[in-house]
């Protein structure tokens, strides 16, 4: 029971991170029907941006307030990561829009390889470790000497995720931008005829997805305290799994899927074997796609003859 509650807490934390990344996948897939393969690497890049920003703040400017520096790091990370993602869309995907279906996918895979190796070359291949912060914990329950704890870090992750999801939900459901996005999802030609700037809407979709991934990247760095150039791939795939599990194209689905994947992973590690936790995540992906290809909240695709 204690183990379960502890894993629940850990799972939700991890799941929040996956959920934030998953939204980027699901939005881009919803609007242009493409798996943005480089999204996981954008997330990794954002971790590095957060790392550099945090170091500048602490070692150069000597800001000691953790929350202030976290706030600034988040803002800087979101801005610069958005810029990266905007550029990628502009240079690598937009010229291929509407052409051969595989071309954007290959371009995205190429971009993913490029980003990974770019960071490796620019920042070196070694793991980057930051000193742990916000280490205090709150003991939630205790029995027989086993303490179930929530760390401040986890609380911060939950709070930031919840706040951002609310803000994001407001943007996509209540603003004209959200309407434009939904219009483009339905039919890009019609949308442009009714005065929606399709290119701009797609750009903004990439930017929002990247901003959320940047939050995830900052949280990831804070949670694990270490990041390396190859850290984009596996979280990226897991977040994609989350998007598929929740029903690709569905934003609440992405969040639910993220939480589920986080929970499956932590529970699996606790009760079965930590070695096979990634196998568990990938198996969930395979099983979902085979038995429930539309995901939990997605709409089934009908094959019209």
């Amino acid at each position: 029971m204690e183990v379960f509650v502890q894993q629940l807490i850990n799972g939700i934390t991890l799941g929040s991170i996956y959920g934030l990344i998953a939204i980027g996948y699901t939005m881009v897939f919803g609007i242009i029907g493409m798996v943005n393969f480089a999204h996981g690497d954008v997330f990794m890049v954002s971790s590095f941006i957060a790392l550099v920003a945090a170091l500048v703040l602490t070692t150069w400017l000597g800001i000691s307030s953790v929350f202030l520096s976290l706030f600034i790091v988040l803002i800087v990370g979101m801005l610069l990561t958005s810029l990266v993602s905007w550029t990628i869309e502009r240079l690598a995907y937009r010229p291929l829009r509407g052409s051969f279906r595989l071309a954007p996918l290959i371009s995205a895979i190429g971009m993913s390889i490029f980003l990974m190796n770019f960071v490796q070359v620019a920042q070196g291949p070694r793991n980057k470790a930051v000193p742990p912060m916000l280490q205090q914990v709150i003991v939630v329950m205790e029995r027989d000497g086993y303490e179930v704890t929530v760390s401040y870090r986890q609380l911060v992750i939950w709070a930031v995720t919840a706040f951002l999801l609310l803000a994001f939900w407001y943007v996509v459901s209540k603003t004209s931008l959200g309407r434009a996005q939904r219009a483009c999802e339905q039919d890009q030609k019609m949308a442009s005829l009714t005065g929606v700037d399709v290119d701009q809407t797609i750009s903004i979709t990439f930017v929002i997805g990247a901003a959320l991934a940047a939050v995830a990247g900052t949280m990831y760095l804070m949670y694990y305290g270490v990041v390396s150039f190859s850290d984009g791939f596996v979280p990226g795939i897991k977040a994609f799994t989350a998007a598929v599990l929740g029903g690709i194209g569905s934003i609440p689905g992405a969040v639910i899927g993220g939480l589920l994947i986080g929970l499956i992973e932590t529970m699996w590690s606790a009760y079965f074997s930590i070695d096979y936790k990634d196998v568990a995540a990938f198996s969930v992906l395979v099983i979902t796609l085979i038995f429930l290809p539309q995901g939990i909240l997605g709409r089934p695709e009908v094959e019209k003859v």
Binding site: L91, A92, P95, L96, S99, F100, A103, P104, I106, S107, I109, G110, M111, S112, I113, F114, L115, M116, N117, F118, Q120, V121
Partner: peptide, 21 residues
């Protein structure tokens, strides 16, 4: 040699833009 995969990724993107098919 560090730049091998970097250039490989870049080439993938460029070739796709040049000749999507």
């Amino acid at each position: 040699t560090q730049y091998r995969m970097l250039l490989f990724g870049l080439a993938m993107v460029l070739i796709m833009i040049w000749k999507p098919r």
